[in-house]
Structure formats: structure tokens, C-alpha cells
């Protein structure tokens, strides 16, 4: 069943007479509990698509619907849809308020969506949520500045989970993390996807990571999707020349090293 439906999305920036077309007629579906990878280089429009889905950007044309209901801008979106779609950003430090404790950050999410707030013991619910993202209860009183980048990203994910979303939009969610920490967060996302029955729109420039976790992949270039299909097909046997060019440029650990000069 289709959860998210993007149809003929178009976003332009700049002057009306000479607009920059960031998204140029994008259509894309994400099924329930499905992970769709959106790849492309900088400026391809992938983040703008994500921002439209999250309601942070108003499209010039086209529609975004969630189970058939239109996803409008944040503020005009019914609370129920607002919470169903949550976003995880690239830089966990700048997406968490440095002056708030972790408990307050999660509490704010519950205050924004009271229907998801725990009925009974909030502290117990908070600790359970932190445990879900692999963190000890004692981080509740700390602030983002006391935590490592990986821990901050866990908090971002906990904040998203707090309101029981159906779709997680991850925009380069592991790109800013150390290599050894990246693997932890990927594992966490994959585990949560199963336990919380989440669908994911996973945006990344890292084709290897996308290949690991996406069911389907869409490749964007200059605001358009040039190729879309099952991850194993698109990334192992690409049909579009741009996808091939991207794959050719991508490095693999197994690629032959340099010629040894002597």
C-alpha cells in the first residue's frame, strides 16, 4: 500500500522571470514500511523534495499526499499528519536546541503532539524511548553540547520516534558522523524500521549506504528523477547513463589501488 505519494512536484527559487528550477516534475511513491533511497549530487534537488514532504517548503506545483490526504505546509497540516512524517537531519548538533536538556527536547515533542504523550510516568516513558535508541537514562539531564555527534543523532531520532511517526525522512542522516559511528546509526535505523513499522525516505549521496538499506532507489539529477527501481537493479545494473556515471565515479574499497611506483 502506498503511504507517501509525490506527484509532478515542482519547486522554483529566485526571481519569477528567471527562476531556478530546483525540482522539475518529480513523482515518487513510498509504500508502508518501505525504504526508498533518494540519491544524487549536490544541487540535484533531493533535499528540496525532502523539505516538501516534511512541509518545510511549499511546492510551486504538484501534490504530496499521505494515505491519500494532502500534506500541506507545516502549520496548515493536521496535527495527525504532522506527526506521522518526521525528519532526521544531517547535522544533529544544529538541529537540537543547545540550551535544552535532552529530557526537555523530547518533552517538547510530546507537548507539540499531546496525543502521543505518555499517559502515566513520563520519566519511565522517556527512559524507554532513550533505551530504544540505545542510550542510557542518565543522558536525560544533559544538553546536546555534552554529547558526541553520534549521541546527538540518537537524540534526534528519539525525538522523531517520540511522536510515533509512520514515515521517517532522513536527509544525509549519517553523512556527518565518524565512520565507526555511522555503522551504529545505520544499524539503529534498520532495527527501528522493523520494530516501529516505519517507512523511510532515505536521502544520501553515499551509494554504498543506500544500497545497504534501501528497498528501492530513485536517482535525481537537475531536479528530475532519471532512474528509479529496486535498489539491487538500479545500483548493480543501471539503465540510465547518469546513474552509470555516478557509479563509475563512486569509489569502492576493493578497487585496485594505485600503480606502485618504484
Amino acid at each position: 500500500m502506498t503511504l507517501l505519494e509525490i506527484r509532478d512536484l515542482r519547486v522554483t527559487f529566485g526571481r519569477r522571470r528567471d527562476p531556478f528550477v530546483a525540482v522539475d516534475g518529480v513523482s515518487l511513491d513510498v509504500g508502508a514500511e518501505e525504504t526508498v533511497g533518494l540519491v544524487g549530487e549536490s544541487g540535484s534537488g533531493k533535499t528540496t523534495v525532502a523539505r516538501c514532504v516534511a512541509g518545510l517548503q511549499r511546492p510551486d506545483a504538484g501534490t504530496v499526499t499521505f494515505e491519500g490526504r494532502p500534506l500541506e505546509r507545516v502549520g496548515r497540516r493536521p496535527a495527525e499528519l504532522q506527526r506521522a512524517v518526521q525528519m532526521v537531519f544531517q547535522d544533529p548538533r544544529s538541529s537540537l536546541n543547545p540550551r535544552m536538556s535532552i529530557a526537555a527536547i523530547i518533552g517538547e515533542a510530546w507537548r507539540t503532539h499531546p496525543s502521543t504523550a505518555p499517559d502515566g510516568d513520563r520519566t519511565a516513558a522517556l527512559h524507554a524511548l532513550l533505551a530504544d535508541v540505545g542510550m542510557d537514562a542518565d543522558v536525560a539531564d544533559r544538553r546536546p553540547g555534552d554529547l558526541s555527534g553520534g549521541q546527538c543523532q540518537r537524540v534526534s531520532i528519539a525525538r522523531a520516534l517520540a511522536v510515533r511517526p509512520r514515515l521517517l525522512v532522513c536527509d544525509e542522516a549519517v553523512s556527518a558522523l565518524d565512520v565507526s559511528v555511522q555503522a551504529q546509526i545505520l544499524r539503529l535505523l534498520v532495527d527501528l524500521r522493523r520494530t516501529h513499522h516505519l517507512a523511510m525516505l532515505f536521502i544520501s549521496h553515499d551509494l554504498g549506504v543506500v544500497h545497504q538499506i534501501a528497498d528501492r532507489v530513485a536517482v535525481m539529477r537537475s531536479g528530475q528523477i532519471v532512474e528509479e527501481g529496486p535498489a539491487t537493479e538500479v545500483l548493480a545494473a543501471p539503465k540510465h547513463e547518469y546513474t552509470r556515471a555516478l557509479l563509475d565515479a563512486a569509489l569502492d574499497l576493493d578497487d585496485a589501488g594505485p600503480a606502485v611506483t618504484a
Binding site: 558526541s148 555527534g149 553520534g150 549521541q151 565518524d178 565512520v179 565507526s180 559511528v181 555511522q182 555503522a183 551504529q184 545505520l186 544499524r187 534498520v190 553515499d206 551509494l207 554504498g208 549506504v209 544500497h211 545497504q212 538499506i213 535498489a231 539491487t232 545500483l235 548493480a236 557509479l247 563512486a250 569509489l251 569502492d252 574499497l253 576493493d254
Partner: peptide
């Protein structure tokens, strides 16, 4: 922890901690 690009790599067991 470095995934391959052209083949699907299973997720590695991550190292704990930072």
C-alpha cells in the same frame, strides 16, 4: 563498516561507543 557500492553489503556489526 564501508559498504560496497555495486553489491548489497550486509550491515556490519558496529563498534560500540564513540
Amino acid at each position: 563498516s564501508v559498504p560496497a557500492v555495486r553489491t548489497k553489503t550486509a550491515l556490519a556489526d558496529p563498534l560500540p561507543g564513540a
